[in-house]
């Protein structure tokens, strides 16, 4: 018996600008109250040598992310993926996303429980 296809999100955090669209798109989709939701955006400021620093935003899928199954079975993209202003998130089978990940550095591949 073939194993069930596992889906995930490929997050290109190099281009995440910290717009918080994914966080609010998820809250709207499922009616989560403020403070809850399937996505949390984090700001990471990394100090670098010579007094420099680097600013990164990272959209983190939480325990509440269900990969928008009600949307994807209708052929829609997950709410966060569709609205992402930087178009830095992709939804798909993890094997396909892993192939994409081989093409570009600074990405994270994630799958829910």
């Amino acid at each position: 018996m073939a194993e069930k296809q596992r889906y995930g999100l490929l997050i290109d955090y190099e281009y995440c600008t910290g717009c918080f669209t994914c966080q609010v798109a998820c809250q709207q989709e499922y009616g989560w109250p403020a403070g809850m939701g399937g996505m949390r955006v984090n700001e990471i400021v990394q100090n670098l040598p010579k007094g420099k620093a680097y600013l990164t935003y990272f959209p983190f899928p939480t325990e509440l992310c269900i990969l928008c199954r009600p949307r994807t079975k209708k052929g829609l993209q997950p709410a966060c993926v569709q609205h992402c202003m930087a178009e830095c998130m992709r939804f798909g089978p993890v094997e396909e996303l892993a192939k994409e990940m081989a093409q570009k550095p600074r990405m994270v591949l994630w799958a829910p429980k």
Binding site: C19, F20, T21, Q23, V24, A25, Q27, Q28, Q82, H83, C84, M85, E87
Partner: peptide, 12 residues
């Protein structure tokens, strides 16, 4: 092209 910001997504 289908994208939207947090402020508009909070319109409800």
């Amino acid at each position: 092209r289908g994208r939207l910001c947090a402020r508009v997504l909070a319109m409800t």
